[in-house]
Amino acid sequence: MSVAFRRESDDEHMEPKFELPIPPGPNWVTMRGLRLTREKVEALESVDVAAMDEEAAKKHKRELRYWRTRLATAELRPVADGETVAFGTRVTYRLNSQEKTVAIVGDDEADPHDGRISFSSPLARAMMDAEVGEKLDFAGKVEALEIVGIVAVDEA
């Protein structure tokens, strides 16, 4: 029989399902980030997937695999000393004449609306190792960013 008359399965036309992407680089976490990751895994493990339809169960299992991987690879970072901008510090900075404060945290803990940015973000990378009063180049502008204050964050 010719291949032209072969019925293809419906699965061949469905969009492929991929694993949730793991951010590149180390999986640094604060105490708070480690706690949140553990809570996420526990919450996902407590769900009865047998009661879900097949697609919802696949999606749930994919999310659980992501969070188990993140928990297994989590690297708890020591509390920063607060002398320089580092992972786990809260930084007050001035950019474009506006003063803002952000905490530098892990990728999964980042929430810019809550003032938490990932250590791998361009802003955090630009500020790393800076001291209070230091002016830094940012977004192609010379001395666009000034470090106003640094506080070590020890959140559980």
Score class of each variant (00 low, 15 high):
L34F: 06
A57K: 13
G82D: 02
S120Y: 04
E12A: 14
D137P: 08
A103I: 13
D107Y: 10
F138C: 04
L123V: 05
R35Y: 09
A56C: 01
N27P: 04
P78A: 06
F119H: 14
W28A: 10
R125E: 13
A56F: 01
R68D: 05
Q98V: 10
V102G: 01
P78L: 01
R7G: 03
G88N: 02
S120P: 00
E143R: 14
D108W: 06
E131D: 07
L123R: 02
A110N: 05
A139P: 08
A74F: 03
D53N: 15
G25Y: 00
A57H: 03
F138Y: 15
S120E: 11
L136T: 02
R125Y: 06
S9R: 12
E15F: 10
A156F: 11
P78Y: 01
V105Y: 03
E12M: 12
D154S: 11
D137A: 10
N96I: 04
R6K: 14
A144W: 03
V47M: 15
E83L: 13
K135V: 04
D53W: 02
L145Y: 02
G106Y: 09
T92H: 08
L71Y: 08
P16G: 03
K61D: 11
F87G: 04
A51D: 12
K141H: 13
E75R: 12
R77Y: 10
E45I: 04
A74R: 08
E146S: 03
D111N: 14
G149L: 05
D114I: 00
W67D: 02
T37K: 04
F138P: 10
A103C: 12
